[in-house]
């Protein structure tokens, strides 16, 4: 497989010199994101996120299975990230690269371990039947900052997703098809977002948000902060690279919080727009068999 082309020495110097003068090649501010776009599919649980030239598609799906024997009261929740050669010919099928492992690990820590999805609510019959929720992340185009885009897509897909309605009567479990009963949303507790800082310069003194692929290739370190709009930090990952001052890192978290609030507001608005689009004639509220939490 062909290797990804690395930036030349001149290109490298040019980017770094420009950053030292507080300028980015695309003219953005250091803490400015590229335009973020989100579209939902016709089906429930399909989110297409575009961040500049980076494009990620996430699809959520549900199935009834047997729970793990050591966790009989919990449902199953998985996030599958696989980078296909569509992202770049340098990726091979069935051979995970470091990028892929890091993304799936970070998504796991951010969304799964932070308890964003209440897995206990996925249990149908203790020890026998439960829902298995799966999110597939497809990276269609990679132009830097995959982690933030992928995390946003996963959260958007899960919040948009509806699973088939079920009922228990006399020990008999019924799963209703979409034609019989309107599907119900997942029990979602909070929406975490990943914000990635990239560091440049000898001591990592220049920090910027939403690096492009070129910037990612010349950075000296990065730090991913996952938090929700209430400022609850789920994880901070600084995997190697040049050490960064603790005070600078604190400042980064403060900016990250305001970005997480923006993301959250943006997602809420998009979900409301989509709900309005689907709710033709205002009959959806009557069709729904869901109880208020």
């Amino acid at each position: 497989m062909p290797r990804e082309a690395e930036p030349s020495l001149n290109e490298r110097e040019f980017v770094l010199k420009a950053l030292q003068e507080n300028t980015r090649l695309d003219g953005r501010e250091l803490d400015q994101y590229r335009p973020l776009e989100l579209t939902f599919g016709d089906q429930y649980g399909v989110a297409d996120v575009t961040l500049g030239k980076t494009r990620v598609l996430a699809k959520a799906s549900a199935e009834v299975t047997v729970p793990y024997t050591d966790r009989p009261l919990d449902g199953i929740f998985n996030i599958a990230t696989e980078l296909s050669p569509m992202t770049s010919p340098a990726f091979e099928v069935n051979r995970p690269t470091e990028t892929e492992v890091l993304i799936s690990r970070l998504l796991e820590k951010t969304v799964r371990r932070s308890g964003a999805l209440d897995t206990e609510s996925l249990c149908l019959v203790a020890g026998q039947k439960c829902w298995s929720i799966r999110v597939d992340v497809h990276v269609l185009s990679h132009d830097g900052n995959l982690i933030d885009a992928a995390c946003f897509a996963v959260v958007a897909a899960l919040r948009h997703f509806r699973k088939p309605d079920t009922s228990m009567e006399g020990g008999v479990l019924t799963v209703y098809t979409p034609a019989e009963r309107e599907p119900v949303p997942l029990s979602w507790l909070h929406s975490p977002f990943c914000i990635t800082w990239s560091f440049f310069g000898e001591e990592g003194e220049i920090a910027l948000l939403d690096a492009t692929w070129l910037e990612e290739q010349v950075r000296v370190g990065s730090c991913t902060i996952s938090l929700n709009k209430h400022g609850e930090i789920c994880q901070i990952a600084k995997l190697g690279g040049t050490p960064v001052e603790a005070v600078a890192l604190l400042q980064c978290t403060n900016v990250a919080l305001s970005r997480a609030k923006d993301f959250s507001a943006f997602l809420d608005r998009k979900l409301a727009e989509d709900a309005k689009r689907r709710d033709k004639g205002g009959l959806l509220a009557e069709l729904s068999a869901e109880n208020d939490r």
């Binding site: 549900a62 050669p85 034609a179």
Partner: peptide, 21 residues
Amino acid sequence: IQVVLQVEDTPENDYVNTKLV
């Protein structure tokens, strides 16, 4: 010559619950 096809959407049968995994 590498052709990668990513399926994004397939029509659903409303009368059957699909196995998706």
